[in-house]
């Protein structure tokens, strides 16, 4: 299948309950690690699991509101946009997420 043709390749990662609330799990696919977060409101977000600062695994950070704090140096990343909170700079790639009934689907194409 050609990646160029596909707008989105959706991957079903299971029920929302498989991700801890205010936490994250990692989806490993073709050598790319994607962190899938769930916040207190049960919103789900997917970010490339690499902090733009020093490459820290964002999946291991503390989640609050729509933010995750990188475990290495506490850069606070916006889960929806991947943008680091000012005055820090940098952006982590984001991936679209779809909730289909109880299932969580993550697009493999970065936004």
């Amino acid at each position: 299948m050609s990646a160029v043709m596909a707008e989105h390749t959706w991957v079903d990662i299971g029920p929302i309950a498989s991700i801890p609330r205010l936490g994250a799990r990692v989806l490993k696919r073709n050598g790319v690690d994607i962190a899938v977060f769930r916040n207190a409101e049960d919103e789900v977000f997917a970010l490339l699991n690499r902090c733009p600062h020093k490459g820290g695994p964002l999946s291991e950070g503390i989640v609050y509101g729509r933010t995750v704090a990188c475990p290495l140096h506490n850069l606070c990343m916006d889960l929806a946009t991947g943008q680091a909170q000012a005055p820090d700079e940098g952006r982590a790639a984001t991936f679209a997420v779809r909730i289909d009934g109880d299932r969580v689907l993550v697009s493999m194409t970065p936004v």
């Binding site: 991957v11 990662i13 299971g14 498989s18 799990r25 990692v26 989806l27 490993k28 899938v36």
Partner: peptide
């Protein structure tokens, strides 16, 4: 266990 295992693709 969820802390130490990656997610699996249901259709992957």
């Amino acid at each position: 266990a969820h802390e130490f295992t990656p997610l699996h693709e249901a259709n992957g």
